[in-house]
Simulated scan of single mutants.
Amino acid sequence: MTAAALSALDVKNISLSFKGVKAISELSFRVEKGEICALIGPNGAGKSSLLNILNGVYAPDSGEFIFEGEPLRDIHPLEAARRGIGRCFQNNALFSGMSVIDNVIVGLSRHARASLIEEALGLPRARVQAREFRARALETLKLFDLERHAEVIVRALPYGVQKKVELARALVGGPRLLLLDEPLAGMNAEEKQEIAAIIARLNRDLKLTIILIEHDLGIVLKLADHVVVLDYGKKLADGPPDAIRDNPDVIAAYIGAPHGELAA
């Protein structure tokens, strides 16, 4: 087995441009199986663009990534999901007029066996699939203590609860790599701690590899096993949280804060 096959993800020399402007430049790093890797950097550093490449929204200009030993370069989001790459977006992407459980069931669409005609006519295979999907969605909601909200319309729920629903939808399909784009954005301190604890539990209990973008450095330093720092699309630093906290280049170019503030 190759070294690449032993890791969850190898990003290899990926570059991406928009109208001639470099968003990502020759970026390479590795994410080991079962770790939480945090991507940090200022707005416009290329963090979300990288996640968009990893789940097939964008195709890189050059380079590739190796997911569980298989080189990938130009895939579509549905194919990424089928391969085991899940994604939560920065902005809430739930269907606000649907119930919680129906939103989570959407995350199982890649597993559908019944055709649209079978579903429309309520044929036996579609009915069996609907029961299976509902049971699976309910089990996933239990991981987030959300089963009591299963039939509630999403728009009626507080923002922090909606973010848990979005996590449940990303998780229900059984991804092996979960991409989280600012999962704590817009939350108060208590909500941030709750969601961070859920992320840590999912990583620990499900052996789930997670890549997350997060601006709260206090949470990053406590939650992540590995931190990659981006600056204008280039890798500035790559290593364990303690090394990133003490890296003078990171402090000067990105964090811009005294050491004491980083340790807070």
Rank of each mutant, 00 (worst) to 15 (best):
T209M: 09
I36S: 10
N247M: 08
L178A: 04
Q193P: 09
H259R: 15
A135Y: 04
I105L: 00
G122D: 01
P124W: 08
R113N: 12
I117G: 15
E194N: 14
G122F: 00
P175K: 12
L27C: 02
R87G: 04
P241T: 01
V100Y: 00
D242Q: 09
E214W: 12
L221K: 13
G174N: 03
A3T: 03
E32G: 12
A130K: 07
L206E: 14
R134A: 08
L206Q: 11
A80C: 11
G239I: 03
A8F: 11
F89V: 02
V172D: 01
H111S: 06
G256L: 01
A237K: 04
P175Y: 13
S99I: 03
A93V: 10
I244A: 03
E119H: 15
R82N: 08
I53Q: 05
I211M: 05
L6I: 13
E191A: 05
C88G: 13
F95L: 15
A120T: 13
E261D: 15
L6T: 14
A130M: 01
A126T: 05
D246F: 11
L123P: 02
P248D: 13
G107S: 06
I105H: 00
I255Y: 14
N103G: 05
V250T: 06
K235H: 08
L171D: 04
E26F: 11
I199A: 12
I105W: 01
R73P: 06
V11T: 02
E194Y: 12
A112R: 15
R127D: 01
R136T: 08
E79W: 02
H259C: 10
I219T: 09
H111W: 09
L157T: 00
P240D: 10
A137W: 04
L6C: 13
N103C: 05
R201E: 09
V161W: 01
R176F: 01
I66R: 01
G256N: 02
I66F: 02
Q129R: 12
G56I: 07
D145A: 05
I40G: 09
A168P: 00
D231P: 03
A264F: 12
V165I: 11
A264K: 15
E70G: 10
K163L: 01
S49N: 07
F89H: 03
N203I: 11
S62V: 14
F65E: 01
V152L: 08
I251W: 12
R245Y: 09
A59P: 09
I153L: 07
I251A: 14
F89D: 01
